[in-house]
Amino acid sequence: MKIDNFSLPHPILRPDGNVKGNFSTHVKVNVKKNEVRIVADMILTNDVLKNFIEEKKVAFGLDISCKYTIYRESFTSFDKKMEILIPAAKLRDTTEVNCFLVAVKDIQNYKNEYREDIYDNRDFNLSKGEILGYSGRDTFEVPKEWEMPEVGGAFFVLDKHSGKEVKYELGSDPILIKIPKKDFQVMHDIKKNERMKAVFYTLYAYPAMLYVLSEIFGERKDMYEHRKWYKRLHEILSSSQFRQLSQNQEESPKIAQMIFQYPLTNSINDIEKVIIGLSEFSE
C-alpha cells in the first residue's frame, strides 16, 4: 500500500514527517505449513497519540496484503504488541505488511505537535480509518511446496533450438538458455569437464546474467518480481558482499562476474592450462 502524500489532509507521524515524535515497528514472522504468525512490537513516542490510544480513539494497525491470492486485511489493537494468525492457505509467496496508527473513531479538532509552525493554529476533523502514523513497510515470503522444476534452485536451465543464436527466456522459471542444436552436445561436454567449468560459465551463464541484470535494473523489473529466480537473485544482491555496490546497469558486468566468481579470469586460466597441456603432449 502506498500513502498518497498529496492526498494527506494533515501531517502524520512518520520518519520524514512534520509531526514530532517517533513511531517504529519491529515485525517478526513465523511461517508454518498451516498458519502464518505475525508478531509486531510498536514503539511510539508522541504524547498526543498515546493519549488517543488510551482513550481508544486511535489504534495500532497492521495491513496485510498478498496480490497473488488477492488478499488484504487490516488488524487493529490498542496494545503495542500485536499477534496475528492468518491461515497459510490465504497467502502465497511475497506478502506485504504495512504498519500504521489509525483513527478507530471520528475525532474532532485533532492537533498534534509539529516540526513546522505552519500547522500550529490548525486543527483537523478526522474520519474513522484515517491514518495518523506510518512506520513503514515490510515483506515476507510464504513459500509453498510446489513441484520443483528440473534444475532445483539453479538460475538457468539449458535447452536446444533450431535457430543460430543463443536465446534467453526470462519468463520461465528457472530462466531458459536456448542453445543452437548443433552446439548443444559440445556445450554438454564442456559443462561436464571440471577443467572447463569456468569456460562454460563464460560462454553461457555470464552473458545470460548480464541480460538478466539489465532487465531487473531497468524499467521492466515488475514483470519478473514473481519469479523464483528473481527472488533468489534479490537475496544474493541483498547479501553483504553485494549490498555495498551500486545496483544499476553500469555495474552489471562487475556484479555478474562476482556472482559466478570471476569466470572470465578463471576461463583464461583454464584455457591456458589446456594449451600448456597440449604443448607438452605435442613435445
Binding site: M1, S7, L8, P9, G61, D63, G129, E130, I131
Partner: peptide
C-alpha cells in the same frame, strides 16, 4: 483509490 491513500479503508466496515 484517492481516499485509500490517506485512509485505511481495509480497517472500516462495508457499511462505512
Amino acid at each position: 483509490n484517492q481516499i485509500g491513500g490517506y485512509r485505511l479503508l481495509s480497517s472500516v466496515s462495508k457499511k462505512e
